[in-house]
Amino acid sequence: MTEHPLVEMIDIEKHFGGVRAVEHVSLDLWPGEVVGVLGHNGAGKSCLMRILSGAMIPNGGEIRVGGKTVEFTEPNDARAVGIETIYQTLALADHLDAPKNLFLGRELKTRFGNLDDARMHEEAREVLARLNPNFKNLRDPVSSLSGGQRQVIAIARAIYFDTKILIMDEPTAALGPSETAMVADLIRQLRAEGIGIFLVSHDMHDVFDLCDRIVVMNKGKVVGAHAIEEVSKDDVLSLIVKGELPADWSARNLEAAL
């Protein structure tokens, strides 16, 4: 354990005109920890994650990575300090093949500054095979691949580079059962390697299966932050929907503690 969290978000604010998407939110993440970020659509969780991935610039607040204050103006700034994001839309360029997508924005080059497609192809083949041994369609544009294969490319892209913090936005929403299990295994493996993960998900099963902690957002605010043992599924649903825990929660929890 290091003495600093991997990342701290302190008093983050974001508003669009009069709409406050994120209000005074503070959040941290430690190495080897999976934190579930929950909330219904429009609760501000995606917005918060986009701020952390550098895709959105906050109106106020501070982000510290490894104890040092950082400022992100574009996604590359966040990637430079080891924050990788798997977007729900996957953010793949449909007409390009898997290796080109994997290295998009961070292309490998030869000594003369040309694209080193041979090396990118080889590296991509390795990392994709590690995630899915059946991945063979390296030359096809990703538009012709299945949802699972596309997800594998997005994941490969997020873990290939020196990743410390991983943001996963609904990573299993488009997947079948076996692929979901693969993603769950991968999350456990990454956690064991000391990577911190923010898991944005609607799937209660995934959340309770994988997360160490949960943070629930409602109307731009954090309405609950709990270790996963402290809460039940009903408690979490109440937080998501009503923005508060059930009335009997503290009594129940006290009982359990005793």
Binding site: A93, N101, G105
Partner: peptide, 17 residues
Amino acid sequence: RHIYATGSNEEAARLSG
């Protein structure tokens, strides 16, 4: 490469750096 990526999916290209 970036010209193709931009035309293929501008938002994805932006998020990819």
